[in-house]
């Protein structure tokens, strides 16, 4: 698929003790929604912070909208960012969030912000004369408030760190609709990059996916291509050993084994009692991440 990059990054490195974020090349396609998936501690937030300009002490080069740097005038104005903590300070109230956004971003529309807050049903106790601080809000309401500050601006790129995590299913569904509308109204010029653990919920809004593990990119590509690249393999227990040699990951259970394999290796399963299915994104992500995961089933 032909596309231009909204973000291009090369040789991004950042070390924290034993952990190292090491990304040789990163392309975020323009006009699409990209999901960043990985285990806790895989480096998603660090990468988003680097791309959002919150961290600038990394090695490597990041360019935005073809050839701009984050420090170039007007670049940050075109990027909407929401973090998981400290984006809104806990002692701020809704009025302050609105006033500060007006002060910090030329393209912030106060009336649109009010209207979005109303539509998203943000707890109105943080507004008005006796406005409560943001710290009194639930995580979901804080996220809705953060999203309102971002969607009330005219931006071309959204970087959202786990926007779906604190949201209820209804709001998560609406977030998908909002992101799809945002991209559709951009006529190919608006892009979204979000990290998520809610792969199934966010699959409908995901065009491109980057799977990260231990600071590195494990897999990337357009969702349709990735789904064609892998296949779910299910089979009898007796074929497990032979089949697992050709699979990316496999799990043997009471009723047989299941896992994923590269589609191009389908012919290697000839003679085995196996069936193939098209995987969903969740299956692909979990299978790929299981390869190197340190997670183990605890003895209960």
């Amino acid at each position: 698929m032909n596309y231009t990059d909204v973000i291009t990054a090369k040789n991004i490195k950042k070390r924290f003790g034993k952990f190292e974020l090491n990304i040789e090349e990163l392309h975020i396609p323009e006009g699409f929604s990209t999901a960043l998936v990985g285990e806790n501690g895989a480096g998603k937030t660090t990468l988003l912070n680097i791309l959002g300009g919150l961290r600038r002490d990394n090695e490597g080069e990041v360019t935005y909208f073809k050839e701009n740097k984050i420090t170039d005038e007007g670049v940050l104005e075109r990027i909407g960012f929401t973090g998981t903590k400290n984006y809104l300070l806990p002692h701020w109230n809704g009025n302050q969030v609105r006033e500060l956004s007006e002060m910090l971003f030329d393209n912030f529309d106060g009336e649109k912000f009010d209207s979005i807050c109303k539509s998203l049903n943000v707890d109105d106790s943080v507004f008005g004369a006796k406005a409560k601080p943001v710290s009194k809000l639930s995580d979901g309401n804080i996220m809705k408030l953060m999203l309102a500050t971002v969607f009330a601006r005219k931006t071309d790129l959204l970087l959202l760190d786990e926007p779906a995590s604190p949201l209820d299913p209804l709001m998560r569904d609406m977030l998908g609709d909002i992101l799809r509308t945002y991209i559709a109204e951009g006529n190919g010029k608006r892009s979204v990059l979000f990290s998520t653990h809610n792969i199934s919920d966010m699959e409908s809004v995901c065009d491109y996916i980057i799977i990260m593990d231990d600071g590195k990119i494990l897999e990337r590509g357009f969702v349709l291509d990735i789904k064609e690249k892998y296949v779910v393999v299910k089979g009898d227990e007796r074929d497990y050993e032979a089949a697992s040699k050709h699979m990316v990951s496999a799990h043997n259970g009471k009723y047989g084994f299941e896992g994923i394999a590269l589609s191009e290796k389908k012919n290697l399963f000839a003679g085995m009692n196996v069936s193939f299915e098209t995987p969903d994104l969740f299956q692909i992500c979990v299978s790929l991440l299981k390869q190197n995961s340190k997670l183990q089933m605890p003895e209960l």
């Binding site: 940050l76 960012f81 903590k85 400290n86 910090l104 500050t149």
Partner: peptide, 12 residues
């Protein structure tokens, strides 16, 4: 940590 991320993501 006393500085908001919103402040840092603004050119201003």
């Amino acid at each position: 940590s006393g500085i908001s991320e919103m402040m840092k993501t603004s050119f201003e």
